[in-house]
Design a protein around this nucleic acid. Sequence first.
DNA 1: CGCATAATTGATTCAGCTCAAACCGAGTGG
DNA 2: CCACTCGGTTTGAGCTGAATCAATTATGCG
Lengths: 259, 259
Amino acid sequence: MNEVSRLEGTIDPAAEPRPTTIKLDLDELRANPVFDGLGSSITNRLLSASRGLQYRAGSFIVHQGGRLNGLHVVHRGLVDLAHVDGEHECGVLLLSTKDLLLPASALFGEPSIVSARALTTTKVVIFDAAEVRAAMEVSRVLANNVLKAMSGQWRMTVRNVLDLSCRTAAQRLAAFLLRLIDLQADSGAPILPIAKRHLAARLGMTAETLSRMLQVVADNGLYLRGRTIIVNDRARAEAFCGPDPYPGGDERGLNVFAL
Amino acid sequence: MNEVSRLEGTIDPAAEPRPTTIKLDLDELRANPVFDGLGSSITNRLLSASRGLQYRAGSFIVHQGGRLNGLHVVHRGLVDLAHVDGEHECGVLLLSTKDLLLPASALFGEPSIVSARALTTTKVVIFDAAEVRAAMEVSRVLANNVLKAMSGQWRMTVRNVLDLSCRTAAQRLAAFLLRLIDLQADSGAPILPIAKRHLAARLGMTAETLSRMLQVVADNGLYLRGRTIIVNDRARAEAFCGPDPYPGGDERGLNVFAL
DNA sequence: CGCATAATTGATTCAGCTCAAACCGAGTGG
DNA sequence: CCACTCGGTTTGAGCTGAATCAATTATGCG
């Protein structure tokens, strides 16, 4: 890594590819839960004030301390929210399709506390901030939907805190894999979609520890061959995860699909 | 602790004193940032649909998995959000005067992921949920204010995650004490307002470790004599805290006063 | 005062980190 | 087709921060 670009956060065209503008599938976008219950005229207006960007794997959408100037929604791909400090990095949340990306930063102009980085090829929709605020003036439904999504992200983050101090590394890993499987339930064989080092950061451990813990969870009914996750004994794996901070918790009801 | 009451979450009158109904200082309440920019007629309507409860130190406001049936605001005192599992407990956030208490639980009827417990004598204001929803229909200002407060709580929780995996126990302790001092800036000598074991849980360490770490931070310009916090060398203490997840970050701009 | 709860101290253990080396698979170029 | 690199992953050895367990000592508090 280039010392200068790391320290100054400047853009090195080679290390930091610019996103490309893309066209979006409007019908799919319209189905995003953030529009639930919103009148179609407002929805259309927001859609017409939106643009799509595609980021390549590894590129940053925003750096910590930076601001987003529109409401960002993950349309495809996985986005890692993490604090990056030189070599060391510390993941917070993995946003997935349909999740809002740092809504507070766009709505309140707050500098982001974390960096957001695409881990896979990622399509992001950006809604014009002024247009979103205007829509919130007209209808409380949008504000309510955003509020709901933020509630869900808060819950996910609280889970993360609890996991970090109540569970072992192996338990966090197993629990993560199980949730991953559930979120991919409709798409055939479950796959680990990201590099292991990013998974390690997300789970608050080093890559070396992750590697060792994979062996431990394998002894408890949860294999990983290549990128394919194989559940040998779901009940055992669930038992191994230890006390779930809040059982039966699934944040999808709050329009959150993050990991 | 009584086995039955712990497992079933039933109310043992001795261990779990009921809160008492109290009258509130309406003028002070009106100054709560959640009402910022809200018309006085709506504000008055909400105030007239509110009630006050006073909890004694140690009593629970809600247990994990439970629901709150109105928008709760901390009016006086400190409320610990924590996951309690038998003996072991794990703190997440310490709410302070003016903070919203688990707003998502009231607004969306979601079961709470954590327990909320008064650590000092605490006064809570409860606004009728239906009335709050009605107010949100009429004016987007209230929704916006709630959104802002939730953003701030999310940021605090993210900080917590980062602290847990980027800082040592001693650094977390020092950083917490410094923030505590700043929040008490206007009230004379800074005081540790809660029992050390609760502080330990909030910081993700055991009471024994906290005790030892207090000696370490004392060697870095931050003493604690009795409950009084004495800053001997602020610059040194700040340097000792290590990398701040996001420097200059103060969530008070987002109407959050939590610790 | 006397009891219960909280805080400290000490000794020991252990989960996970660090550092270093080996390994592996995918490109790349001869 | 093979050698070579190069990033990512795995494995191993040792270290360390913090937990645990156990024993005191302080601090309320009725």
